[in-house]
Design a protein around this nucleic acid. Structure first.
Lengths: 200, 200
DNA sequence: CCAGATATGTAGTGTTCACTACAGATGTGG
DNA sequence: CCACATCTGTAGTGAACACTACATATCTGG
């Protein structure tokens, strides 16, 4: 099998740069010119490697969720439902205001609403947010089985709630909320989970 | 003063149609062609009346927040902080899944991230979301003064929290969450406010 | 060192976008 | 009825967009 000329850029490094552009400007707001410049490549290299703009977004999302998945594993490893919620929301407050990244969350900034021809972009983002929610729900199901959450509690509703708060914090972060403000939101939000926890 | 030919369309009716297009596709995803078709007018009429695309968005946002303001007044008229939060979040669950409108909230769907040249669109939306939050905060400040909220509570943090949940619910609604799912989120969320309420 | 295969850079392609020039239509004031 | 002002519909405008044709460069297998 013939190999041909090897590519001169590192795909993952380039993806990190593309991720940041999508994160800051959204899918529709990001232009190929911005993406190629940030990635340090020319359009033909981008299309040869990722197919098209949407393919590049999906690759960036894969990378994002993969990194995030590692962190989520740590989150759900917390001992109680309350600790899970606290670790998650406090961590999100920090992550979403980390100056190393654009503010907010790529799964929100990427594109909540899109124009004709990009309808599956919001769907793609929603699917990945739902995966997070599922992971959280499974953890809360376990917490209920362990007697950590009240028998009357609804693990799915709790997971959906925590997800909603996380998304809301992301939007706030992208519109300028600072770390302390987000931590206060997280701190209040955790109390609802605490209210569903069994008395010790 | 000369009057000239009168316009043949009703500006508010046309705005309602434009609002729906922005709501469904976002600012960048909405095209002038879609907007003019929905409004039943031609581009020159749009530009004569609203200046440009961004002017049209602002006019639509003004109309949206005006209608919403009436409802918010009812919300903050609830007797307790808990009742305010419940009325607001339950109402939002219903409004954001009302089939008469696109799902979610225009102040979120309009555009969280935008491309170069539309940077002030997200800012414009954030400003209007902040107005809601301010109204809520003022109400919670009062609740604290009345002894309805604990002395240790932070009205600004509570208002920010409720706003965040509302935004998160909007994103969920736009990605397919049904009314019951949103009501469950609201129901859980209210418990955090309850935890900040003074024991009766 | 040659043939085939893949990557790269230059320089475009057609399409779609927000926006407008212009001519005709419809109103008001004198 | 005329001068003027504003609106409307047709038909575009230049610019920006996602994407690509093509020539050249750089690799591997034989």
């Amino acid at each position: 099998m013939r190999m041909g000329r090897p590519r001169e850029f590192d795909a993952e490094t380039a993806l990190d740069q593309a991720m940041e552009v999508f994160w800051r400007h959204g899918y529709e707001g990001a232009t190929i010119a911005q993406l190629t410049e940030a990635m340090g490549i020319n359009p033909p290299s981008l299309y040869a490697c990722f197919g098209n703009k949407e393919g590049l977004l999906k690759a960036a999302l894969d990378r994002y969720t993969k990194l995030r998945g590692v962190w989520m594993d740590e989150v759900v490893a917390a001992p109680t439902a309350r600790a899970v919620a606290e670790r998650m929301l406090m961590g999100i407050a920090d992550k979403q205001t980390d100056p190393a990244n654009p503010p907010g969350c790529l799964l929100v900034q990427g594109g909540i609403a899109c124009g004709t021809g990009s309808e599956n972009v919001p769907f793609e983002l929603a699917t990945r947010r739902a995966q997070n929610e599922d992971q959280l729900r499974d953890r809360f199901v376990r917490a209920k089985a362990e007697g950590d959450l009240k028998p009357s509690s609804d693990p799915a509703a709790l997971a959906r709630y925590v997800s909603a708060v996380a998304v809301g914090m992301g939007v706030m972060a992208s519109s300028g909320a600072d770390r302390e403000a987000l931590r206060q939101v997280a701190s209040v939000a955790v109390q609802a989970v605490e209210a569903q926890s069994a008395p010790k």
